[in-house]
Design a protein around this nucleic acid. Sequence first.
DNA 1: TACTCGAACATACGCTTCGTATGTCAATAT
DNA 2: ATATTGACATACGAAGCGTATGTTCGAGTA
Lengths: 198, 198
Amino acid sequence: MVARRRAEMVEETRARLIRAARTAFAAKGYAAASMDDLTAEAGLTRGALYHNFGDKKGLLQAVIDQIDAEMLARMRAAHGQADTAWDRFLNEGVAYIEMSLEPEIQRIMLLDGPAVLGDPSQWPNQTACLRTTTQAIQRLIDDGTVKPVDAEAAARLINGAALNAALWIAAADDPHAVLEKAVEAFRQLAAGLLRAEA
Amino acid sequence: MVARRRAEMVEETRARLIRAARTAFAAKGYAAASMDDLTAEAGLTRGALYHNFGDKKGLLQAVIDQIDAEMLARMRAAHGQADTAWDRFLNEGVAYIEMSLEPEIQRIMLLDGPAVLGDPSQWPNQTACLRTTTQAIQRLIDDGTVKPVDAEAAARLINGAALNAALWIAAADDPHAVLEKAVEAFRQLAAGLLRAEA
DNA sequence: TACTCGAACATACGCTTCGTATGTCAATAT
DNA sequence: ATATTGACATACGAAGCGTATGTTCGAGTA
C-alpha cells in the first residue's frame, strides 16, 4: 500500500471524485450538487477538485466522458445476436432507450449535460454512441438496405426519438408498459428509412 | 394613465418581469441569469418577483407557459395550406424544427426547461404542442393513413426527432444547409408511420 | 544523503446570489 | 375615517463558487 507511484495516486483521486460526482449529480442534479459535500464524500476538499478538473463544469465533463464510454460499450454488446444488419441497428436503438431509463444517465447525460455544456454534438468526446449510430446508418445505406438519406441527419433524428422515448418512459407510472409501446413505435418509425417494405 | 385598476397594474408587472426573464434566460441561460439584474432591467426589484412567482423556478415556468402558447399558435398556422392531413402533419413537424432554431426557444424550452423543471410531459401546461401532435396522429390513425401504433408514443418519438434535429441545426456552421438535410430525413423517417408506401 | 523544486492537495477569503423576513405605501372595504 | 390587506421595496442571513495562498510530500540531482 505504501510508496505507490505518483501517477497512480492522481488517478485514484480523480476516480474517487468522478465516482462521488456521478452519484451526487444523479441524485440532486448538477446545479443542486454542492462541491463541498461532493468532495467531502470522496474524502477530499475542493482544492483537489479545482486542481484536477479546473471547475465544476470540468468535473461534469469528466463524468460525462466516463458514462459515454460505458454506453458505447453496452451498445456494442447489444447488437450481437441479431441476424441482419438492420436488426442489429434496431437493437442498438432499443438498447439506447433502455439505458436511458437509468436515472444516472437520464439526469446527467440527457438533462443536465446539454443544459450546462450545450449541444452534445459539440462536446469534445462527440458522444461516441452518436458516431456509432451514424456509421451504422452509413453502412446500411451503402449496402442498399436504407434509402440514400444523409446518414448524420438520420442518426440525429433516430437518436432524438430514442432520447425522448426514454424521458417519457422514465416519467411514466408504469415504465414497463410504456417501454413496450415506445419500442414498437420506434421500430415502425425507423422502418421509414428502409428502402422497400417488408 | 392615472387611476388604473389594481389588476391591470399587477398584470403589467408580471408581463414586464416575464419579458425581462425571456431575454435574460435566452441570453445567459437560466443558471447564469441574475434575479437582481433581471428585475432591475424591468424597473423593479426581487420583491416583486418573489411576490408574483414564488421563486426563480416559478418565473421560468411562467416564461415557458408563454412561449409554449406562442409555439402552439404558430404550429396551428403552419398546416393551413397543405392538401392532405398527412402533409399538414408533416408541416407541423417542420414548423417545430424551424421554430426550435430560435435561440430563445432552444435555450429556454429545449435545454434549461427540462433540466430545471424535469420532463416536459410532466409540466402543468403539458406542452400544448405535444398534445396537438398526439391528436393529429390519432386522427391519422382513425382515418387509416397511419399504422395503428400508440399515438402518444409516436408523437413523443416524432417530437424528439424534431427536437434533436433543431439542436443539431442550431449548432451547425451552415444552419440553412443542415436544415434541408434534416427536413428531408424527417420526412423519410415519418413515412415509417404510413400504412402503405406512396 | 542532503537539498531543491514542483506537483498535489488543503485552507482561507471575497464575491455573488438566492430566499426570507421585515418594512412601507396605497387602495379598498366597512 | 380608519382598519386591513395586497403589492412591492429593503434588509438580512446563508450557501456556494472560484481564487489566492499555504503546506506537504515525492522525485530528481549531486
